[in-house]
Amino acid sequence: MNRFKASKFRHTEARLPRREAWIGGIRAGSVTSCGNHVKASCRWIAFNAEAAGVLGIVPLECEDGGKRTVSQLCCHSDVVTDFDFSPFDQLLLATGSADEMVKVWRLPESGQDLPGSAGLTLKSGGGPVDVLQFHPTADGVLASGAGKRVTMWDVGRQQPLTALDSHGDQLQSLTWKRDGRLLGTSCKDKKLRLFDPRASPAAFQSVPGHENNKDSRLLWMGASDCLISVGFSQMREREVKLWDTRRFSGAMLTVALDTSPG
């Protein structure tokens, strides 16, 4: 008797959408940054364009069966390093840039012109804004990372709530847990940190992460307490590590993605 139960997904396969649903002919940029290169809300898709400081904006749904029009949003005076849509307002887009600014834009309903200026500009300080992300459960709270500092912003009041200054080197990634209680960060000092920003001062734990200080990224595993980190080993091979944040010490699992030569 077979000890392993056959998966109900064993015969599934991916199906490409019809060609009419494709979005083609887009000239995306190749910006080197720690942030995202494409994000979507229920209304819009945003992506890095070729020109510095510009995002490409495409409506998710085309009207009357017509073709989607790619528009350009001139955001910053330097490279757009990261951007994120608010989970509470599908027309609200935050952008960060190498010009050390965080801007918040209100995109129009489909078929209308894009805004010529940001609704809100926040001066981050500390260097280029490398990463940013809206809080998943608190409306109007935005985390941005610049240099060695993470700043929590109250977008409605246009002021910082708190700053997390416990990093030893440049930030590479930040991610909110789905319930918003914890914030994880990865850093060029090869450490992962876990913050409770509600504590005063903000409480945190740190553990050794990947052995190479090349770019790394953190992601929460659904609604669980598990954190996934993607980075590089000492031999510059890509690897994925799985962490249990309830016992935040060594990684539970390490998977090498590259095969060593020889």
Rank of each mutant, 00 (worst) to 15 (best):
A143V: 04
V141F: 12
L164N: 03
G116P: 05
S110L: 06
T121K: 15
V102A: 06
D169W: 05
M152Y: 03
D154F: 11
D165S: 04
H135F: 09
V104Q: 10
G96V: 11
Q159N: 05
S97V: 11
G116K: 08
E109Y: 04
S173H: 04
D139N: 10
T162V: 02
Q112C: 09
D179E: 10
R149S: 13
T175Y: 00
G96M: 10
M101W: 11
L132N: 09
G184L: 14
G156I: 04
Q133K: 10
T121P: 05
P108I: 15
L122R: 02
R149M: 13
S124V: 14
K123V: 03
F134S: 07
A94D: 07
L132E: 07
E100K: 15
D130V: 14
Q170I: 08
K123C: 07
E100V: 12
M152N: 02
S117R: 11
Q159S: 03
T162H: 01
R106I: 02
L114D: 06
G184I: 09
S173I: 01
A94S: 10
E109R: 12
V129P: 01
D165C: 01
D165A: 02
G96Y: 13
A94R: 00
R178L: 02
G119H: 07
L107R: 07
G180N: 05
S110T: 14
T162P: 01
K148D: 12
G140Y: 13
S117C: 08
D139E: 10
L122H: 01
L114C: 06
L114Y: 03
T151F: 00
G111Y: 13
V131L: 14
G116E: 14
Q133R: 12
Q159T: 07
M101A: 12
W105C: 06
W105N: 13
D154Q: 05
G111W: 10
A94M: 06
K103I: 09
G119R: 08
L183S: 03
L142H: 13
D154P: 13
L122D: 04
L107H: 08
S186I: 07
G184V: 13
E109S: 13
W105T: 08
Q158H: 03
G180T: 04
W153Q: 04
D113V: 10
A98E: 14
K188T: 11
W153K: 01
K103C: 12
Q133C: 11
G127R: 00
A98I: 00
L114I: 07
G111E: 15
G147F: 02
V102P: 00
D169S: 08
A146V: 00
G145C: 06
H167Y: 02
T162I: 01
T185K: 09
G116N: 08
L120M: 07
V102K: 05
G156R: 10
L161G: 05
V131E: 02
S97Q: 13
G126C: 11
P128V: 15
R149T: 14
V141D: 07
G145T: 07
